[in-house]
Design a protein around this nucleic acid. Structure first.
Lengths: 324, 324
DNA sequence: GTGAAAGCGCTAACAT
DNA sequence: ATGTTAGCGCTTTCAC
């Protein structure tokens, strides 16, 4: 290649890496040679000397079955691919659902096979976070990592705000017995959406009116049945995700309750399912694409050697459809 | 590392690569040294000499916005990650939605950055397929690549069979005016599901009873409105995907038609949305996980240097719920 | 069965 | 502004 352009390999390398000291003549000769020979740099060789890999790994920490039931991941993946591509970085996907997975991820990352780590849906106490620890490449997360909020930068929706928006909407509507189906209580969405709910209702938010799900549709249905049994007189339910809300809708229908007449149902996410249910869901829009973008921006800042970066919390928005 | 075990680097390498000529003594010494030093092979260095990268790239050819509305991709990604991990290969994701994307993919693949290519949802005539051409690493596809069925091995559902199963079910129910909403006519699912439909109905499958969608929910709704206008007396509609069927359901409801009493609705995929709609969808189950597995198996066979491999076509199954 | 040594293609430091 | 050169860490002959 260098030979084809009549210059040394050093000069070619300088051009490719944006070094300023390349003469116009050399530049032209090299560019011609590149397009004629179809030359492409060998990343392995480059990695060997630069100690960088040109790739970022997205670690999905949800148990396998549940993982992809949630359409939100799709947006994350799409945005990440796009933004990484702009920097000529590639996205490697790994799962960290069980112990074996986690070990693989740790070996991969500590082995220097990724320049950065993108954590997704990491639960509280996940040993992976400790194992990744310091000394490795920079890590960021979409959504806070509980217990590591000050260690792992993140971009997240303002979960509490969203929960308050929905709960206050119910209150304004004059709903009197407002229940909630939460997410898993070891995730920020699980914890903080409940907190927002409780902030608005105060002592009216009793245990009888709260049930827990695991983000799946089936769990939403189960939780709704539970609530109807415990508090048959409820007239509204705030469900911490659209998918679980779809399940709740099915349980309400089975119980003969009309939505929103008898029971108002509010979801969270504003994902695709929100418009495929009947009635379409009133829900809280999470700016997912923006969250993903901001998370990538944090990662890039870290990759560029910026100092410590601050978490980003983005506002949510009430989207009124027909379920409430 | 070699020093830590008191042997030469060559011996370490031999052990790591499963060469038989390693004495038990050396093996023990090396294994101890590995666990003590936390040694991990440097893939870049290995790649440099072996000319293999240890990664497979999944190329998603759908335009960006539509891409992930379809929950099916999730399963593909999950299965691919799992099966690749077992071989210590990693999954790199790329998009090929527009021209710039495609160029990047081609450079990546032709630049030798992947040991294999996993095509997903490639449309007929996609220039990417030609560009990847021969001489590169082996490529396989989930679902046939139209026009390249004999070049690119694939695992797919028996689309025609599925369409026949649904259409025959309608016929058995005594439905007389059966319409269809197809997928894009440059995809196997678009073409072959229509073929199966037409095979059963013969000349009763007229243009008036056929509308086209692009797999999105919105397109399903639009197509359904179109059909209702053209053929108000229809009493059944076979929709080529669950997501589009969700859209069709909305259009039918808006038009005041009861499902399944007035109009029977059949979907295709048996994806998560099939149970979140009201009523839940009668649909055709596509063995997606199995398709993904078989596709990976084909890829592995190719990576292992097996001769030409045969496409795999898997049977579908009618799943009766409440929409028909 | 194992050590020694060449070399994969590149970057970066050094010379000029 | 550019050529020269020394590795990066591994696999793979080739000797022994």
């Amino acid at each position: 290649m260098a030979a084809a352009a009549g210059v040394s390999r050093g000069t070619v390398s300088r051009l490719l890496n944006g070094d300023k000291y390349v003469s116009p003549a050399a530049r032209v000769a090299i560019e011609r040679a590149i397009s004629e020979t179809g030359y492409v740099v060998n990343r392995a060789a480059r990695s060997l000397v630069t100690q960088r890999t040109g790739s970022v790994v997205m670690v999905l920490s949800e148990p396998h079955e549940k993982l992809f039931e949630d359409p939100n991941y799709s947006t994350l993946i799409r945005v990440a691919i796009r933004m990484l591509a702009e920097r000529d970085l590639s996205l490697v996907m790994m799962m960290a659902g069980d112990e074996g997975d986690r070990e693989r991820v740790v070996r991969y990352v500590r082995g220097g096979h990724a320049d950065g780590v993108l954590l997704v849906s990491t639960h509280a106490g996940d040993p992976l976070v400790e194992a990744l620890g310091s000394g490795g490449p920079p890590a960021v997360s979409v959504g806070a990592v509980i217990g590591h909020e000050n260690v792992i930068p993140y971009a997240a929706a303002d979960e509490r705000l969203g929960a308050r928006q929905m709960t206050e909407y119910f209150v304004r509507q004059g709903r009197r017995r407002i229940a909630m189906i939460t997410g898993p209580m070891d995730t920020p969405g699980g914890i903080q959406r409940l907190e927002g709910f409780a902030e608005v209702l105060g002592r009216k938010a009793t245990q009888r009116l709260i049930a827990h799900g695991d983000w799946t549709q089936a769990s939403g249905e189960r939780a709704m049945r539970e609530l109807l049994e415990r508090s048959p007189d409820l007239d509204a339910v705030f469900v911490a995700s659209d998918l679980m809300a779809a399940g709740a809708l099915a349980a309400l229908r089975a119980a003969g309750r009309r939505v929103p007449d008898d029971v108002a149902v509010g979801g969270f996410d504003d994902s695709a399912v929100a418009v495929s249910t009947h009635p379409p869901l009133t829900t809280i829009r999470q700016p997912l694409a923006k969250m993903a973008q901001e998370t990538m921006r944090l990662l890039f800042a870290l990759l560029d050697g910026a100092g410590p970066v601050e978490p980003v919390v983005l506002p949510t928005e009430l989207v009124v459809r027909e379920s409430a």
